[in-house]
Design a protein around this nucleic acid. Structure first.
Lengths: 147, 147
DNA sequence: ATTGGTGCAAATCCTTTGCAATAGC
DNA sequence: GCTATTGCAAAGGATTTGCACCAAT
């Protein structure tokens, strides 16, 4: 079952606009993030690239992920300190994380982000992103705990 | 200017109730977290203990912080992957984090946690905590960037 | 031809593990 | 005295750095 190859024209355009180079590594990393569902670790991205671009180094993966975040094409998520996750789904959404097994699900709550941003500005900050994480037990883990 | 020593009677009671030992390290770690404002790293906790209990090891600090989280006396926060922060303020509240310098401020938005929890349960999870983080630029960093 | 990106190796940082010694019960 | 906790040393894992080489412009 072939997965369609997502376009990365937007990345190429952004890079050119900033005078940065359009490299195959950069395009491929974003393509892999877009191809899979969300939430890949840097290591998973690196593994996913092996077939198409073997020999890619981890420093390149990390640097590129950081760049994609800066460009607003990818969100960096830090749930359990230790390993960051990268998410190519840029529309506002939230996450539920299982405390026991680490499973993650997306959520689409319609947050009142206006009042949130207003409150943030009251602290003197210039807010540019809202991250909501709900911790709990996924169904299987809740079951296992009850037993 | 002497800071009052916060009580840790609640911790002692919880430990006894669970048949766990009330050690000076455990009491002191919670006391330090309560004495300072919030958001200490494990390393900062370790440093803060040096005077009162020199020779405390980092494994003890980490194990104890994990225990305090489990007991619900401390919140573990993971903003920038790499280093966790521990927060002894347990009432529900949110955080603003500066993307540039890492400065953190508390926020007290009255979130509609009911609708959030309902949405979370729709995924099959049993939610037990809501964490909201707003990223942005603190005033000094916003100023520096503009210049 | 330039110089920004990359790969390699090694370093750094945070956190955890294994095990003998210690202190709370 | 029994055994959970501790301290020590060392390992583990994620991420970053320094530098020589390569490839996009």
């Amino acid at each position: 079952m072939p997965v369609p190859t997502p376009s990365t024209d937007d990345l190429a355009a952004l890079l050119r606009a900033r005078g940065q180079r359009v490299t195959s590594q950069r395009l491929l990393i974003l393509r892999e993030l877009r191809r899979r569902a969300h939430h890949m670790t840097a290591h998973e991205v690196w593994e996913a690239m092996r077939r198409a671009l073997p020999g890619t180094s981890t420093p390149t993966v990390y640097a590129t992920l950081e760049l994609l975040v800066e460009l607003g094409l990818v969100r960096k998520l830090c749930f359990d300190a230790g390993t960051a996750l990268y998410d190519a789904r840029t529309e506002p959404h939230q996450h539920v994380v299982c405390r026991h097994c680490g499973r993650i699900e997306d959520l689409d709550i319609d947050l009142d982000s206006d009042s949130i941003l207003v409150a943030a500005r009251a602290t003197g900050f210039d807010p540019d992103g809202v991250e909501l994480v709900i911790a709990g037990s996924c169904a299987p883990c809740a079951e296992a705990t009850r037993a």
